[in-house]
Nucleic acid binder design. Structure first.
Length: 577
DNA sequence: GCCGTTTTCGGCCCGACTGTTTTCAGTCG
């Protein structure tokens, strides 16, 4: 059973308990455990079988027993019992914005509402207004929410790459306004999370109302909400919700820290502050004893007041960064500027949109020392495959291009992204692979084989002496496709033993290795390389998303192979050994 | 239900907003 399935079951049980009126903290404990399990890089099912699930923070004896029952019987007895007590379709009702478990339970007890259909009927018949605490306004809001759900489906999170360009463009416009003093993109976009729900902009300005008006009147705004001296709210034409909050410069650090999040980071920060006799909010830090409140212009001062080293936004996820900041043991994170080359891209030879020369030029423009051109291989399909003869010609073309460039400072590597076939073998003969400068092995077919077979398949590729690197290890597409099942720990163990690199694919749809796997791989001693998988010259820019994943995985430049210059990197390739 | 610079019980973040209500509970981020 996958971690996500266990997490889903615990989340459902949390809501069932909440509907049943359990104490708040029990519900919170189940939700927190679900979060930790969802994020875990290792199989929680395996941990539970070994009786080690309690090693996860937030999982105690009780939860371990419940997970074991879920694995053995496919359900948790407590959940089954509660589902007999009231209709489980009541859970859907709690998903309507503005309705929670308390209200849902009262709708059931007092109006016999069991589901979204029942809720709609009652609202249309004007029956909800009879319940204490609800009125006509609530009826209208519920009907509007049901309508939105029917037409738009559940609110989905947007890919960071859909949100970040919009956020940056809006921030740039605001920065250019004469009344603006500082504007920062905050929230999950600042943390470079995989997906975002909305955009938070934090600003300070000499004329706040004027700055807020600028956002409301921005051409990207499809609809504008209220706008005043404290901020403004818009929805862009591509459906991104944007909140601008404007604050006095003295408290800019407090507000920025608060709205950068994450929620989990902030909760942990505030809990720690309480133990120090301090109360932290977006407005400042209050000392309980003296009653004195302090405001800070910068985030660094906020962290300093709490006895912590500055925490980079990408680390603020409640994954131990506060404890590390306290000990002064936060890693010095890798940066985009540390990279010396990109080792995965495509050209018009397979499914890319730019030529070999255009890709090389773009890499030189970025200041790289090397670019591996890795078009798809012989069995790729879609008419985009590259035959063995095509590849031999490509090797010659690359040699000619390098000669023409005539510099020691930059070189193109003749490479390939080779399909790992179902039996784990590459789809070019070894003699041809040996002529390449660089080869990546990737899985592009037969995703649905068993976890054991997939693990065996990829480990075989890892052990192949002429595959230098494994591409997009799990094949996931964020929000669209789960990755294939594979025992990543076994793969990393083999990769470390064989000197096979594993990439962080920077494509914002992939970001694969995901961050928890990247941490695990680096800890296992695997060389990571961060590559774009660019299919056009402009897409070399996507490297920022891959570096963000590396940073969110706590990685330093040291742990990334392609931060080395060519001389050193060339010797680190498996084929060079 | 979890956890320990308040260790095996008694705590467990902070504030804004909403809709309903004359002081607040529920929900949300």
């Amino acid at each position: 059973m996958q971690n996500a399935e266990i997490a889903d079951a615990l989340t459902e049980l949390a809501t069932l308990y909440e509907l049943d009126g359990a104490v708040r903290y029990r519900v919170l404990a189940y939700r927190e455990a679900a979060r930790v399990i969802r994020q875990s890089p290792v199989s929680v099912a395996e941990l539970a079988r070994e009786g080690r699930a309690t090693e996860l923070p937030g999982v105690g004896k009780t939860l371990e027993t419940k997970i074991a029952a879920l694995l053995d019987d496919g359900e948790i007895p407590a959940a089954a019992k509660l589902k007999a007590k009231f209709p489980p379709s009541l859970i859907e009702v709690t998903l309507i914005p503005g309705l929670g478990a308390k209200t849902a339970r009262r709708l059931y007890d007092e109006a016999g509402i069991e589901s979204l259909d029942g809720l709609r009927e009652a609202a249309e018949d004007g029956k909800l207004r009879d319940l204490k605490g609800l009125g006509e306004r609530a009826e209208q809001n519920i009907l509007a929410a049901l309508e939105r759900l029917a037409t738009e489906g559940p609110a989905e999170r947007l890919l960071l790459s859909e949100v970040l360009p919009v956020a940056e463009q809006l921030a740039e416009t605001l920065r250019a306004h004469p009344a603006s003093e500082a504007v920062t993109v905050a929230g999950s976009a600042r943390r470079w999370a995989e997906t975002c729900k909305d955009v938070d902009l934090i600003a300070t300005a000499s004329d706040p109302a004027a700055l807020a008006g600028t956002l409301s009147e921005h051409p990207l705004a499809a609809t504008a909400g209220s706008s005043g001296s404290s901020g403004a709210r818009i929805v862009t034409h591509n459906g991104v919700k944007v909140d601008l909050r404007i604050v006095a410069p003295e408290a800019y650090g407090n507000l920025l820290q608060h709205f950068t999040g994450s929620k989990e980071h902030n909760v942990e920060l505030r809990e720690r502050a309480v133990r120090m006799g301090l109360s932290v909010s977006e407005h400042g830090i209050l000392e309980a004893e003296s009653g004195e409140s302090a405001r800070y212009a910068t985030e660094a001062e906020v962290y300093e007041r709490l006895g912590l080293a500055y925490v980079e936004p990408e680390l603020r996820e409640g994954r131990g960064e506060i404890a590390a900041a306290e000990r002064g043991e936060l890693p010095e994170l890798v940066e985009v500027g540390d990279l010396r080359g990109d080792l995965h891209c495509h050209t018009t030879l397979s499914d890319g949109k730019s030529s070999l020369a255009e890709m090389a030029q773009a890499a030189q423009d970025r200041g790289y020392e090397y670019l591996a051109v890795t078009d798809h291989s012989a069995t790729h399909g879609f008419g985009d495959h590259v035959t063995a003869d095509d590849l031999r010609r490509r090797i010659e073309e690359v040699a000619e291009l390098n000669q023409k460039l005539g510099t020691e400072d930059f070189r193109v590597l003749a490479g390939s992204e080779v399909n790992i076939q179902t039996d784990g073998s590459p789809d070019y003969p070894d003699e041809l692979l040996a002529e390449l400068d660089w080869a990546i092995g990737s899985v592009h077919t037969s995703f649905r084989i068993s976890r054991a077979e997939m693990t065996k398949r990829i480990v075989a590729a890892v052990e192949h002496p002429l595959l230098d690197c494994i591409g997009h290890l799990t094949g996931r597409l964020i929000g669209r496709r789960e990755g294939y099942e594979v025992d990543v720990e076994k793969v990393f163990e083999a990769a470390a033993a064989n000197g096979t690199m594993i990439e962080i694919n920077a494509n914002p749809n992939r970001r694969d290795l995901r961050e928890s796997h990247a941490t695990l791989a680096a800890d296992a001693g695997v060389w990571i390389c961060v590559n774009t998988d660019a299919h056009r010259a402009a897409s070399l820019e996507f490297i920022g998303y891959g570096i963000a994943t590396a940073r969110r995985a706590w990685l330093t430049a040291d742990q990334i192979a392609n931060t080395r210059g060519w001389k050193q990197f060339s010797g680190m390739r498996k084929r060079a050994k």
